[in-house]
Amino acid sequence: MRQSLIEIYKLNEDIINIIVKFFAGIIVFVFMSFFSGGDLAFSRKFIIIILGGIFAVISSPAVFLVVSAIAMVVFIASVSIEAAMVAFVFLFLLYVFYGRIFPEESLLFIAMLVCFKLKVPYIIPILGGIYFGISAVVPASAAMFTNQIYPVFEELVKMAPVSKFSVSSMPDTLFNMYTYIFSEGLESVSGSFYVSVTMVLTVVSAWAISSTHINYDKEIAIIVSGVITILGMFLAVIVGESGFSVIGFSISVIISAVFVYLIRTFDDMPDYRRTEKVKFQDKNYIYYVKAVPKIKVSNNDYRGDD
């Protein structure tokens, strides 16, 4: 089944990519619209479809990041102008300090926020560690932190709903928001430090094990990073007093690990039973090569002179 799905994909790669990107864009922007209270009025649905279309045709991750950030700010502005300004500053800082330099990895930040809504956020740090390496640490931790501060953000929206917006009171409102964020707001999310550190450990363990080139390295990386995530989150709940449901997140980590394994099976699946080790040398070097054949290769692939 896996082989036939891959063959179908290879035959229709371009069309499937555009369709998948379009729906991925729609999902991202629908979740972003939840910042505006989840009330999908017709105009908002229209905007989401347009944005999904833009995402389907643009290939630059940096452009997608900017479009997503603008969409997020616009959706927030529909419920609170001042909260949108705060979100803008936060996103701007994320962009200049990280997103501009690592645009591909920054997509993990958006993906993880979406996965939080789908209750499987731990897919991203494990996948990021395996496929992006150590640079996935920042987006995974930042997304975890952002998810943790979401209640603070909801408070900000309540403090200044768009119905009470006036330009003259804006400086006072922003001042009150600032005071709230740096006093009660940050105190209420002090446990987020521990969960962010847990994400760092998850990514690092997934990256370190998957780069060892031992047999079943990716599979071991998935299991070990899953276990580290569960242990780290337990510590975050006990020491950092994070408000997680212990059973809930354990199940979420296990489901996330299963998803990562499924994604992994659609990657090049190696057949470790037929591993060959060869050694050869030229004038300057001795090469030790470990060749792991893919599990199922159709005979047609080897026809020809290569």
């Binding site: 500053v89 701007f92 800082l93 962009y95 200049v96 300090f97 501009r100």
Partner: peptide
């Protein structure tokens, strides 16, 4: 960009 971000921080 970094200088602008630094000023805000």
């Amino acid at each position: 960009g970094v200088v602008m971000g630094y000023i805000i921080v």
